[in-house]
Design a binder for these strands. Structure first.
Lengths: 259, 259
DNA sequence: GTCCGTCTTCCGTTGAATGGAAGGCCCAGT
DNA sequence: ACTGGGCCTTCCATTCAACGGAAGACGGAC
């Protein structure tokens, strides 16, 4: 389903990037011809470019002649401010939150019109979730997404509201009017409670994380089973942790209106 | 000290990679002209390539017109098997180890003739260390390095032993013969104890992590203050955690000779 | 044995990448 | 207010690196 066949990229740079983009969570290793097929590049060209990427360490080659993303690229990737930087400061708070809830704790940021999960703490007692660091989901159907959208600029909000809202389950908000009401509620309460909108058996409680400029830079959430503890009991710890991260990031601390 | 001026890369691919390589922990944001200077590329060329990288999401541009590594690249980087894959399985064990020791817990892998730190758990009570995920150090002077070298193939061992051994402190092993003895001891004990060889005030206890093929794929270590608790007391937990990670990675479990 | 899918090398052609020159912008110094 | 110097950006004629077809090598399946 992913990996739309693109119309043969022209510049060398875009070709190189297309090769990197051919790797995904589902396909962590690829052969030259697979890369060629996924990117639409001629086999010879893919072969040559892959060779250069290996020489640098962006890709690595296993004994079977298949390729995977290399350590060097991982190193460079870790320099992304919204990746590692955020992660480093958030992790301790996320661990505390995990100790309290023993459920999946997730941190996500906004990129384009999607949620990107940056970090997750999971454990044996937590419900399984489909997300992992690096995965993307649409904004309207997840707790973190609703938080990020609620505090995003008008432009993006309108763009999402006017676009199609993909349905995942019977609970997914797919009506623009209803989503508008949800977003208003998130802004009012400073928290999103999103029940079974991606997977029926789980719900998430999400709160915004502020940066120094008093803008929302990320969202923190806990995912719990749909049946069981009252989700309202985990609102305070989620809020507290989100606030802790915000402070650690240099947030001045106004907006203390929410109790 | 870093960023040696390279003699003007020729192919487009290598130029693109040179740009990515210009970013480092010390320089997470760069302007076009800085990139040009660091890579030796003509300003115009750097400008054009950076533009393409931004369009794809490999780099991002802030309001000031400076660039930093983008989320998209972080995503792809997270696919590195020895980065995220390892991390995911190791993290729970590392957390347990942290709970026991309340000291820095580090996970590292071998790349070329260097140690690359993949993950670190730190806390308020831990001594500060210079490493962070993504940083590199030579093999001979760190606990994890000595472990990785001890179990590396002969080729690499000879290469390191015959090369210059950089001195960090008065304790650093810089003599090839002595290093040989240290490595033998590591193989015998299944653990490396490395005192003050990078920084005088700390020492580390490191143990090997095995993969399914019964080869060493990583090293786990705890860094403790040089003065204080007897380092021998943390050997058992470090060994146990390293073993736990090995098992979780699919290690069959022979070599159980070490007690 | 043959077939089919894969990876790899070679090399003559060509069009994409190149980078100098020039223009715009902003700040600091005078 | 003017000037100089640092940046970033655009333009476009030249050229050299990227291209990719063809052909060979390998390896497994039937």
């Amino acid at each position: 389903m992913p990996a739309m066949s693109r119309g043969a990229p022209r510049s060398v740079t875009s070709r190189v990037l297309a090769i990197l983009g051919a790797f995904s969570a589902e396909r962590v290793t690829l052969g030259v011809s697979e890369i060629s097929r996924h990117t639409g590049l001629p086999l010879t060209t893919a072969h040559r470019l892959v060779g250069e990427l290996v020489r640098w360490g962006a890709l690595e080659r296993d004994d079977a002649g298949r390729y995977h993303v290399g350590l060097r690229l991982w190193e460079v990737g870790s320099l992304a401010p919204r990746g590692l930087g955020l992660r480093e400061t958030a992790l301790p708070f996320m661990e505390d939150l995990y100790e309290i809830t023993h459920q999946n704790v997730q941190l996500a940021v906004l990129d384009g019109a999607e949620v990107v999960y940056v970090e997750r703490i999971s454990g044996p007692r937590a419900v399984s979730v489909i997300t992992r660091p690096g995965s993307r989901l649409p904004l309207h159907a997840t707790g973190v997404g609703q938080v990020l959208l609620a505090y995003a600029d008008r432009d993006l909000q309108e763009r999402v509201l006017s676009g199609p809202l993909r349905r995942f389950t019977g609970n997914t908000v797919t009506d623009a009017g209803e989503l508008r009401r949800v977003l208003a509620a998130v802004r009012r309460d400073g928290v999103a409670m999103c029940d079974g909108q991606v997977e029926t058996f789980s719900l998430s409680v999400a709160a915004p994380v502020y940066g120094p400029a008093d803008t929302v830079v990320a969202a923190l959430s806990v995912v719990v089973p749909a049946e069981g503890t009252d989700p309202r009991t985990i609102v305070p710890p989620v809020r507290a942790s989100a606030r802790g991260i915000s402070r650690a990031l240099g947030w001045a601390g106004h907006r203390s209106t929410h109790r």
